[in-house]
Design a protein around this nucleic acid. Structure first.
Lengths: 132, 132
DNA sequence: ACGCTTGTTGAGAACGGTTGTCAAAGATCG
DNA sequence: CGATCTTTGACAACCGTTCTCAACAAGCGT
């Protein structure tokens, strides 16, 4: 239960710190491998899972169902505007939306309310790239 | 390309019409099978996909990644408050949220904006059931 | 009603992301 | 250093979903 700090976990955390965009476990694994820091794929999954459990990273699902991970600047609850092509991300918070969500749900007699509010789009860079 | 009306497709549509909750393709397949209307699993997937493309059904992803389908009353854009245990659903629209989402995204220079806004909770019935 | 054409079906294989297995490796503590 | 006990990694297993392809059946024209 002691959460040991191993070379592999350090490598995953460092990689996440250097990347600003949402990345899949497999992309991360590839990045580490290319960098010479060889880490097993299963280990990357486990590390990300642990970090997510500890709220150290944010997780969201791409449209195809793949899980994407990112180390966000703020640890408080917030949402994202993500480029569906490159993963480029802008953190967003919407106090209005939060209030709306919990009010609506409570009014219907629901408990343990959670909400998913994510925005997807094509960022300016990817748009420029696809035009050329 | 003509979209033929087959026994199988009719069965899927009818089953969806009778069910008020979000269901997975496999649940639907099981329901049809139990009902005597034997339909292949792949066919259920294809039918649901076609219906989704035609905006005849709404699709959303459960927390475990599974796709859930539902024939909604209104065809216009809306959101859902869904019980994560039984799939029981309340349709919701939030004009305020819509405006907020597109404004925020546009302000960041993003195009082709889509948003995912879903509420998950435990409905009153399921809460009562889990207490007992 | 009868073929013909062409989209559709279904059983099973294939796929892709993720998780489980388990012996070997290594982090931590005394 | 040694004992302990978590972590690792290669690989298999899983599970939802999609693909394959020969058999089948809608719908159309006659």
């Amino acid at each position: 239960m002691a959460a040991r700090m191993t070379r592999q976990r350090t490598a995953v955390v460092e990689a996440l710190d250097e990347l600003a965009d949402f990345r899949s476990a497999q992309q991360l694994h590839e990045t580490l491998r290319a960098r010479g820091e060889s880490v097993g794929l299963a280990t990357v999954y486990r590390a990300l899972q642990a970090l997510a459990d500890a709220s150290e990273v944010d997780v969201l699902r791409a449209e195809d169902g793949e899980s994407l991970y990112r180390r966000c600047a703020r640890r408080e609850h917030h949402h994202h505007l993500v480029c569906r092509h490159c993963g480029s991300t802008v953190e967003i918070d919407g106090p209005t939306v939060e209030a709306w969500a919990s009010k609506v749900a409570a009014a219907q007699g629901f408990d343990d309310i959670e909400h998913t509010i994510e925005l997807w789009g094509t960022c300016a860079d990817c748009r420029a790239a696809s035009v050329s």
